[in-house]
């Protein structure tokens, strides 16, 4: 004879199992990216500071100077001047929190001879190890330069790229 005493528990079990399955499906289906809660804020600040610094470097101080410091840096491959100016702008401290910013700068051009894209490092305050959480800022600069050195000297548009991060 079949006893119906356990039926209720079976239905409960099946229902519970279904709920668990649905829950697990929902949880696993949601992509979760774990980042520090305020990392976007400091990224934003770093990006603004970096692009402001590049903008400042691309502004001559008066009308008698025809070439901005940044154009001069790219034309002469003057990594020291870049480092000096960029660090001065990014690490200047007002009343706010002290910045401890590291950078790695290069400029990119398209080769006039074989149309390949090449990057020339300018300077870096520290080598990138890959673990840094860096932001990238860029600035277009027009220089009269031989790019590459075998090409004729002419007006070229190059992209100055700077990676910025905090220690």
């Amino acid at each position: 004879m079949v006893n119906s005493g356990g039926q209720l528990y079976t239905i409960e079990g099946v229902a519970a199992g279904l709920i668990i399955l649905v829950t697990a499906y929902l949880v696993l289906n949601t992509t979760t990216v774990y980042t520090a809660g305020d990392s976007h804020i400091s990224d934003m600040q770093l990006e603004i500071l970096g692009s402001d610094a590049l903008k400042m470097m691309d502004t001559p101080l008066n009308s008698s100077v025809t070439e901005s410091p940044l154009q001069q840096i790219v034309r002469n491959d003057d990594g020291f001047l870049f480092r000096e100016m960029f660090m001065r702008y990014t690490n200047v401290s007002g009343f706010g929190p002290k910045h401890d910013i590291q950078f790695s700068a290069s400029y990119t051009y398209e080769s006039a001879t074989d149309a390949s894209i090449n990057s020339v490092p300018l300077n870096a305050s520290r080598n990138l190890t890959g673990g840094e959480h860096a932001v990238r800022v860029t600035k277009w600069v027009i220089v009269n330069k031989k790019l590459p050195s075998s090409a004729p000297s002419e007006d070229r548009a190059v992209l100055v790229e700077v990676l910025l991060w905090r220690d």
């Binding site: 398209e110 006039a112 894209i117 002419e154 007006d155 548009a157």
Partner: peptide, 23 residues
């Protein structure tokens, strides 16, 4: 560049377009 000269420099034009898409 273009605005002041009144003409598009072919070399700079291609630099800007190609570097924009690639970098």
């Amino acid at each position: 560049h273009a605005g002041n000269n009144g003409e598009i420099d072919d070399r700079v034009y291609h630099d800007i377009i190609n570097l924009s898409i690639k970098r």
